[in-house]
């Protein structure tokens, strides 16, 4: 069994997540250059996306039943990647306010996937993993760590966060390869969010999150609602064939 190296260490978690955000911003800058996009409104739109994504990740994760103070929740409360990612209202607001009309759905997803890979490494090193494996493998906690993050010591738990890291790495690789070949601008974002929604729905069964109803957790019920929107959007992506690969810079 593998031990949990930095159980409950918020500094390690925040430091690695900070690296992820920095990597995403650098990749965004690189991708703008590669595509020859010099419009000064793109950074403010990225700013709106980051700020509103972060706000959504807090607000929609607020568990009112826990009755914590607003300051505590705001400073130390849970954050949900899922609610932060789905919706992208910050981008729409930024585009509307700045008057930018082109789609930027192909620009942001690889940067988001990169941030997710590193951010999830922070989670893997510090957080409670998934459900018990039932075997002699998985991530285990020492008695001291179990007192900090909860759960029984010495039992192997599913490394569900590691599965997520692998997913985002694979998504980044695929987006890197196909980011200029999808039929319409913005399709990359739809593909990324849809595939993550399906993956997350499946991996939730071994995440160990609290079951809300009918054996499914809160994120799974949230995703069931999102699937309706995604089923409507996906046919537009796969209704047309891929664009041929272009060499050189993309206009």
């Amino acid at each position: 069994m593998i031990g949990l190296p930095f159980a409950g260490d918020g500094v390690v978690h925040a430091a690695v997540l900070g690296l992820g955000i920095r990597a995403a911003l650098l990749f965004h800058a690189y991708e703008k250059l590669r595509r020859g996009l010099s419009d000064p409104r793109l950074w403010p739109i990225a700013g709106f996306a980051v700020a509103f994504g972060a706000i959504r990740s807090r607000v929609l994760k607020w568990d009112v039943s826990r009755q914590v103070s607003s300051a505590d929740w705001w400073g130390n409360g849970d954050r949900s990647i899922l609610t932060g990612l789905v919706g992208a209202c910050g981008v729409h607001l930024g585009k509307r306010l700045t008057g930018y009309r082109e789609s930027i759905g192909d620009l942001l997803p690889p940067a988001v996937a990169l941030a997710m890979v590193l951010g999830r490494v922070g989670c893997l090193l510090t957080e409670l993993p998934g459900t018990p494996t039932g075997g002699a493998w998985g991530i285990a906690r020492t008695p001291g760590q179990a007192a900090t993050v909860g759960g029984p010591p010495g039992v192997g738990f599913q490394p569900s966060i590691a599965y997520e890291i692998v997913f985002h790495m694979a998504a980044f690789e695929l987006m890197w390869r196909f980011r200029d070949r999808l039929p319409r601008p913005g399709d990359l974002f739809i593909c990324y969010v849809t595939s993550y929604a399906f993956f997350r729905f499946g991996v939730e069964f071994v995440c160990g999150n609290e079951v809300l109803w009918l054996g499914m957790s809160r994120p799974q019920w949230f995703l069931l609602g999102i699937f309706l929107v995604l089923f409507w959007r996906m046919p537009r992506v796969f209704g047309k064939s891929l664009r041929p690969k272009l060499e050189g810079r993309v206009a």
Partner: peptide, 10 residues
């Protein structure tokens, strides 16, 4: 966004 995502943990 950075402040909210990193939170008070750090």
């Amino acid at each position: 966004g950075v402040f909210i995502l990193l939170g008070g943990g750090i």
